[in-house]
Simulated assay, not measured.
Amino acid sequence: MCGMKRRILSLICAAGFVTTVAACGSSDSGSSASDRVSYHAAFPEFASSDEMYATADSVVSGVVQPGSEVRELAPIVVDSNDPKLNPQAGTEATEEPGEPVVVTVHRVRITELHKGPGKVGDVIEVKQLGGTLGKTTYESQETTSLKAGTPYLLFLNTYPDAPASVLTPIQGQYTLDGQGAPQSLPNNKLKLTDADLKRLDRTNMQ
């Protein structure tokens, strides 16, 4: 339930769809407890791994490095729904001018490049909605935070002057097991096997 304040943020998600995020903040008056703000978002759902692979600008396997950074993005209004013209796609408010959006930016060292620019060994930035700034924690219920030291397979949209965004927080990231096989998040109905990934890589190279 929302507390003392409620704001509705309209976001352009990483896949180019328009989605609405409700951000609810509450605090305990007179207490020293930290404020908490919850982002609630609707993201596109891909019907197949082929569709998701084709949509992504970049597909990488990589290990999250220590030292994530929480950033506050100042919202701006864009005239285009094209995510290529909107470098903050996926985290940017187009309603309620002056209302910031908080993201956590992770550094990921590429161990295998499946699609897109870059090379093995490069370190890229990947942003996720939410983080803690000061005494306020911003949370996205749809997001599972990337963990330092953990290998992932990530389906990304990339931008010239901003961190990449995972296509969707549910379907766009997979942990990799000891054999390098992708493991879906518990609420991800789209399963992806190592054989699927190798097939998609071969198709992309043709």
Rank of each mutant, 00 (worst) to 15 (best):
A33N: 14
E45I: 07
T91L: 11
F155E: 04
V120D: 15
V120H: 10
S184Y: 02
V120I: 11
N81P: 03
G172W: 05
Q128G: 08
Q65K: 02
T136P: 15
T20R: 13
G172F: 02
A195D: 04
N86G: 08
F155R: 02
A195G: 06
L176Q: 08
S10D: 15
N188E: 03
T137A: 15
E139I: 11
V101F: 03
D28G: 08
T193I: 00
R71A: 06
L73E: 09
N157R: 15
L133P: 10
D35G: 12
G172T: 01
E96Y: 12
T193Y: 03
L167R: 01
A23W: 04
Q173W: 05
T111P: 05
L176N: 10
M4G: 15
E69P: 09
Y53M: 06
K147N: 11
M52I: 04
Y159R: 05
Q128R: 12
A14Q: 12
I170A: 11
L185Y: 03
D177M: 01
E72F: 04
L129A: 01
P100V: 00
P186K: 05
D177S: 04
E99Y: 10
T136S: 15
P182H: 06
C13S: 13
T193P: 12
D201A: 12
E96R: 15
H40I: 02
K127L: 08
M205D: 11
G121S: 11
K147E: 14
P66G: 09
P186T: 02
S48R: 00
I110Q: 02
N81T: 11
G172D: 10
T137K: 14
I170E: 10
P100D: 02
F43P: 14
P97T: 01
G16C: 01
V77C: 15
L9P: 02
D79L: 10
C2M: 07
D35Y: 08
R6S: 13
L113H: 07
G130P: 01
